[in-house]
Amino acid sequence: MEVEGTAPGSTLMIMKKIVKQGWRPVLVVVLLLILWESSSRLFAIPAWLLPSPLTIMEEGLSSWSNYAHHLVSTTKLSILGFVIGTSIGLLIAILLHLMPRVRQAFYPLLILSQNIPIIVLAPLLIIWFGFGVLPKLFIITLVCFFPVAVAALDGFRQTNAEMKHYMYMAGASKWQVFSKLEFPHALPAVFSGLKISATYSVMGAVISEWLGANQGIGVYMTLAQSSFRTDRVFVAIFFIMLLCLLFFSLIIVLEKFCIKGRAEQEAKS
Protein backbone atom coordinates (compact mmCIF):
# COMPACT_ATOMS: atom_id res chain seq x y z
CA MET A 1 0.00 0.00 0.00
CA GLU A 2 2.99 2.28 0.40
CA VAL A 3 3.63 4.83 -2.29
CA GLU A 4 7.24 4.85 -3.34
CA GLY A 5 9.06 8.00 -4.45
CA THR A 6 7.38 9.99 -7.18
CA ALA A 7 9.17 10.55 -10.47
CA PRO A 8 11.41 13.56 -9.66
CA GLY A 9 12.39 12.08 -6.28
CA SER A 10 13.47 8.83 -7.83
CA THR A 11 15.69 10.48 -10.45
CA LEU A 12 17.48 12.29 -7.64
CA MET A 13 17.90 8.95 -5.88
CA ILE A 14 19.38 7.44 -9.00
CA MET A 15 21.86 10.34 -9.32
CA LYS A 16 22.93 9.80 -5.73
CA LYS A 17 23.30 6.11 -6.36
CA ILE A 18 25.56 6.74 -9.35
CA VAL A 19 27.82 9.00 -7.29
CA LYS A 20 27.81 6.50 -4.46
CA GLN A 21 28.69 3.50 -6.59
CA GLY A 22 30.62 5.32 -9.29
CA TRP A 23 33.92 5.44 -7.38
CA ARG A 24 34.50 1.70 -7.81
CA PRO A 25 34.94 1.63 -11.61
CA VAL A 26 36.81 4.95 -11.51
CA LEU A 27 39.26 3.50 -9.00
CA VAL A 28 39.84 0.43 -11.17
CA VAL A 29 40.54 2.56 -14.24
CA VAL A 30 42.93 4.84 -12.32
CA LEU A 31 44.79 1.84 -10.91
CA LEU A 32 45.12 0.29 -14.36
CA LEU A 33 46.48 3.56 -15.78
CA ILE A 34 49.03 3.81 -12.97
CA LEU A 35 50.12 0.24 -13.60
CA TRP A 36 50.44 0.96 -17.33
CA GLU A 37 52.39 4.18 -16.80
CA SER A 38 54.81 2.72 -14.28
CA SER A 39 55.44 -0.45 -16.27
CA SER A 40 56.17 1.46 -19.47
CA ARG A 41 58.69 3.55 -17.52
CA LEU A 42 60.16 0.63 -15.67
CA PHE A 43 60.70 -1.55 -18.75
CA ALA A 44 61.42 1.40 -21.06
CA ILE A 45 58.95 0.26 -23.68
CA PRO A 46 59.48 2.23 -26.92
CA ALA A 47 56.69 4.72 -27.65
CA TRP A 48 55.97 3.34 -31.12
CA LEU A 49 55.21 -0.04 -29.54
CA LEU A 50 53.15 1.04 -26.56
CA PRO A 51 53.09 4.68 -25.55
CA SER A 52 52.50 5.51 -21.89
CA PRO A 53 49.17 7.02 -20.85
CA LEU A 54 50.78 10.39 -20.14
CA THR A 55 52.30 10.54 -23.64
CA ILE A 56 48.92 9.73 -25.12
CA MET A 57 47.24 12.42 -23.04
CA GLU A 58 49.83 14.96 -24.06
CA GLU A 59 49.35 14.14 -27.73
CA GLY A 60 45.57 14.26 -27.30
CA LEU A 61 45.73 17.73 -25.74
CA SER A 62 48.37 19.32 -27.94
CA SER A 63 47.04 18.28 -31.34
CA TRP A 64 43.33 18.74 -30.62
CA SER A 65 42.99 21.17 -33.50
CA ASN A 66 44.47 18.56 -35.88
CA TYR A 67 41.82 15.97 -35.30
CA ALA A 68 38.78 17.92 -34.03
CA HIS A 69 37.20 17.97 -37.50
CA HIS A 70 37.68 14.19 -37.79
CA LEU A 71 35.79 13.79 -34.54
CA VAL A 72 32.91 15.98 -35.66
CA SER A 73 32.61 14.13 -38.94
CA THR A 74 32.49 10.69 -37.28
CA THR A 75 29.98 11.87 -34.69
CA LYS A 76 27.67 13.20 -37.37
CA LEU A 77 28.03 10.03 -39.42
CA SER A 78 27.32 7.76 -36.44
CA ILE A 79 24.26 9.70 -35.36
CA LEU A 80 22.80 9.81 -38.84
CA GLY A 81 23.53 6.11 -39.37
CA PHE A 82 22.10 5.25 -35.97
CA VAL A 83 18.87 7.12 -36.59
CA ILE A 84 18.38 5.59 -40.04
CA GLY A 85 19.41 2.09 -38.95
CA THR A 86 17.28 1.92 -35.83
CA SER A 87 14.25 3.45 -37.58
CA ILE A 88 14.49 0.81 -40.28
CA GLY A 89 14.98 -1.87 -37.61
CA LEU A 90 11.89 -0.79 -35.70
CA LEU A 91 9.84 -0.50 -38.85
CA ILE A 92 10.87 -3.98 -39.99
CA ALA A 93 10.00 -5.38 -36.55
CA ILE A 94 6.54 -3.78 -36.59
CA LEU A 95 5.77 -4.97 -40.11
CA LEU A 96 6.97 -8.51 -39.45
CA HIS A 97 5.04 -8.65 -36.17
CA LEU A 98 1.77 -7.50 -37.72
CA MET A 99 2.18 -9.93 -40.62
CA PRO A 100 3.14 -13.30 -39.13
CA ARG A 101 3.37 -15.06 -42.49
CA VAL A 102 5.76 -12.45 -43.86
CA ARG A 103 7.69 -12.83 -40.65
CA GLN A 104 8.10 -16.55 -41.21
CA ALA A 105 9.33 -15.89 -44.74
CA PHE A 106 11.79 -13.13 -43.92
CA TYR A 107 13.14 -13.96 -40.48
CA PRO A 108 15.94 -16.24 -41.79
CA LEU A 109 16.96 -13.49 -44.20
CA LEU A 110 17.17 -11.07 -41.30
CA ILE A 111 19.64 -13.34 -39.55
CA LEU A 112 21.60 -14.03 -42.74
CA SER A 113 22.06 -10.28 -43.25
CA GLN A 114 24.18 -10.31 -40.09
CA ASN A 115 26.44 -13.04 -41.39
CA ILE A 116 27.80 -10.95 -44.25
CA PRO A 117 31.34 -9.91 -43.27
CA ILE A 118 31.38 -6.12 -43.45
CA ILE A 119 35.01 -6.15 -44.55
CA VAL A 120 33.96 -8.08 -47.65
CA LEU A 121 30.85 -6.03 -48.26
CA ALA A 122 32.54 -2.65 -47.99
CA PRO A 123 34.66 -2.83 -51.18
CA LEU A 124 31.54 -3.90 -53.06
CA LEU A 125 29.61 -0.93 -51.72
CA ILE A 126 32.42 1.38 -52.75
CA ILE A 127 32.35 -0.09 -56.27
CA TRP A 128 28.60 0.54 -56.40
CA PHE A 129 28.24 3.83 -54.58
CA GLY A 130 31.69 5.42 -54.66
CA PHE A 131 33.43 7.09 -51.70
CA GLY A 132 30.57 9.33 -50.64
CA VAL A 133 28.41 9.12 -47.55
CA LEU A 134 25.94 6.61 -48.98
CA PRO A 135 28.00 3.40 -48.67
CA LYS A 136 29.03 4.45 -45.16
CA LEU A 137 25.44 4.94 -44.09
CA PHE A 138 24.63 1.59 -45.64
CA ILE A 139 27.23 -0.15 -43.48
CA ILE A 140 26.11 1.58 -40.27
CA THR A 141 22.48 0.83 -41.04
CA LEU A 142 23.33 -2.81 -41.61
CA VAL A 143 24.95 -3.15 -38.18
CA CYS A 144 22.39 -0.95 -36.37
CA PHE A 145 19.05 -2.27 -37.53
CA PHE A 146 19.51 -5.85 -36.39
CA PRO A 147 19.73 -5.47 -32.58
CA VAL A 148 16.67 -3.20 -32.56
CA ALA A 149 14.65 -5.39 -34.93
CA VAL A 150 15.29 -8.61 -33.00
CA ALA A 151 14.78 -7.00 -29.58
CA ALA A 152 11.52 -5.37 -30.68
CA LEU A 153 10.20 -8.56 -32.30
CA ASP A 154 10.89 -10.52 -29.11
CA GLY A 155 9.38 -7.74 -27.03
CA PHE A 156 6.17 -7.74 -29.06
CA ARG A 157 5.88 -11.50 -28.81
CA GLN A 158 6.44 -11.64 -25.07
CA THR A 159 3.49 -9.42 -24.31
CA ASN A 160 1.69 -10.45 -21.12
CA ALA A 161 -0.95 -12.99 -22.15
CA GLU A 162 -3.50 -11.89 -19.55
CA MET A 163 -3.37 -8.25 -20.66
CA LYS A 164 -3.75 -9.35 -24.26
CA HIS A 165 -6.69 -11.53 -23.26
CA TYR A 166 -8.34 -8.56 -21.57
CA MET A 167 -7.85 -6.43 -24.67
CA TYR A 168 -9.48 -9.04 -26.90
CA MET A 169 -12.37 -9.58 -24.49
CA ALA A 170 -12.92 -5.82 -24.30
CA GLY A 171 -13.20 -5.74 -28.08
CA ALA A 172 -9.88 -4.14 -29.06
CA SER A 173 -8.92 -4.25 -32.73
CA LYS A 174 -5.61 -5.74 -33.81
CA TRP A 175 -4.14 -2.27 -34.24
CA GLN A 176 -5.39 -1.18 -30.80
CA VAL A 177 -3.82 -4.26 -29.24
CA PHE A 178 -0.57 -3.34 -30.93
CA SER A 179 -0.51 0.39 -30.28
CA LYS A 180 -1.94 0.39 -26.76
CA LEU A 181 -0.47 -2.83 -25.42
CA GLU A 182 2.22 -4.59 -27.43
CA PHE A 183 4.26 -1.53 -28.38
CA PRO A 184 4.49 0.08 -24.94
CA HIS A 185 4.98 -3.37 -23.43
CA ALA A 186 8.00 -3.93 -25.70
CA LEU A 187 9.65 -0.56 -25.01
CA PRO A 188 12.16 -1.89 -22.45
CA ALA A 189 13.23 -4.54 -24.96
CA VAL A 190 13.47 -1.93 -27.72
CA PHE A 191 15.71 0.16 -25.51
CA SER A 192 18.04 -2.79 -24.90
CA GLY A 193 18.33 -3.06 -28.66
CA LEU A 194 18.96 0.67 -28.99
CA LYS A 195 21.80 0.51 -26.48
CA ILE A 196 23.57 -2.18 -28.47
CA SER A 197 22.95 -0.31 -31.73
CA ALA A 198 24.32 2.90 -30.25
CA THR A 199 27.71 1.34 -29.61
CA TYR A 200 27.64 -0.51 -32.94
CA SER A 201 26.95 2.72 -34.81
CA VAL A 202 30.29 4.24 -33.77
CA MET A 203 32.13 1.05 -34.69
CA GLY A 204 30.32 0.91 -38.00
CA ALA A 205 31.24 4.52 -38.73
CA VAL A 206 34.92 3.97 -37.97
CA ILE A 207 35.08 0.79 -40.05
CA SER A 208 33.37 2.48 -42.97
CA GLU A 209 35.88 5.33 -42.77
CA TRP A 210 38.84 2.95 -42.90
CA LEU A 211 37.73 1.78 -46.26
CA GLY A 212 37.85 5.14 -47.93
CA ALA A 213 37.06 8.62 -46.73
CA ASN A 214 38.73 12.00 -46.51
CA GLN A 215 37.92 12.66 -42.88
CA GLY A 216 36.80 10.93 -39.70
CA ILE A 217 38.38 9.11 -36.78
CA GLY A 218 38.82 6.08 -39.02
CA VAL A 219 40.94 8.13 -41.44
CA TYR A 220 42.92 9.69 -38.60
CA MET A 221 43.58 6.22 -37.24
CA THR A 222 44.79 4.83 -40.57
CA LEU A 223 47.09 7.80 -41.08
CA ALA A 224 48.47 7.48 -37.56
CA GLN A 225 49.03 3.77 -37.98
CA SER A 226 50.89 4.06 -41.27
CA SER A 227 53.26 6.66 -39.77
CA PHE A 228 53.81 4.61 -36.61
CA ARG A 229 52.20 7.28 -34.44
CA THR A 230 50.92 4.73 -31.98
CA ASP A 231 50.08 7.50 -29.50
CA ARG A 232 47.61 8.93 -32.03
CA VAL A 233 46.06 5.49 -32.55
CA PHE A 234 45.41 5.42 -28.83
CA VAL A 235 43.96 8.93 -28.90
CA ALA A 236 41.57 7.69 -31.59
CA ILE A 237 40.66 4.62 -29.51
CA PHE A 238 40.00 6.85 -26.50
CA PHE A 239 37.62 9.05 -28.46
CA ILE A 240 35.81 6.08 -29.97
CA MET A 241 35.22 4.75 -26.47
CA LEU A 242 34.12 8.15 -25.25
CA LEU A 243 31.69 8.52 -28.12
CA CYS A 244 30.21 5.07 -27.49
CA LEU A 245 29.81 5.85 -23.81
CA LEU A 246 28.14 9.16 -24.59
CA PHE A 247 25.64 7.57 -26.97
CA PHE A 248 24.97 4.84 -24.47
CA SER A 249 24.23 7.26 -21.63
CA LEU A 250 22.03 9.33 -23.92
CA ILE A 251 19.92 6.26 -24.61
CA ILE A 252 19.70 5.49 -20.88
CA VAL A 253 18.48 9.02 -20.18
CA LEU A 254 15.90 8.67 -22.93
CA GLU A 255 14.86 5.30 -21.51
CA LYS A 256 14.29 6.74 -18.02
CA PHE A 257 12.15 9.38 -19.63
CA CYS A 258 10.07 7.01 -21.77
CA ILE A 259 9.47 4.04 -19.52
CA LYS A 260 7.11 4.95 -16.74
CA GLY A 261 5.78 2.93 -13.87
CA ARG A 262 8.16 0.07 -14.42
CA ALA A 263 11.57 1.41 -13.48
CA GLU A 264 10.97 1.18 -9.75
CA GLN A 265 9.27 -2.16 -10.04
CA GLU A 266 12.23 -3.64 -11.86
CA ALA A 267 14.71 -2.02 -9.51
CA LYS A 268 12.98 -3.84 -6.65
CA SER A 269 13.16 -7.30 -8.15
Binding site: N160, E162, M169, G171, P184, R262
Partner: peptide
Protein backbone atom coordinates in the same frame (compact mmCIF):
# COMPACT_ATOMS: atom_id res chain seq x y z
CA UNK B 1 -16.11 -9.22 -29.76
CA UNK B 2 -16.47 -6.11 -27.64
CA UNK B 3 -20.15 -6.46 -26.74
CA UNK B 4 -19.52 -6.97 -23.04
CA UNK B 5 -17.27 -5.28 -20.53
CA UNK B 6 -14.99 -7.60 -18.67
CA UNK B 7 -13.19 -7.88 -15.35
CA UNK B 8 -10.59 -10.64 -15.52
CA UNK B 9 -9.38 -12.90 -12.73
CA UNK B 10 -6.07 -11.10 -12.74
CA UNK B 11 -6.54 -7.29 -12.76
CA UNK B 12 -4.37 -6.97 -15.91
CA UNK B 13 -3.70 -3.27 -15.41
CA UNK B 14 -1.02 -1.88 -17.70
CA UNK B 15 2.05 -1.07 -15.59
CA UNK B 16 3.03 1.96 -17.70
CA UNK B 17 -0.34 3.66 -17.34
CA UNK B 18 -1.47 5.54 -14.25
Amino acid sequence: RGRISYTPQNPSLFPWRT
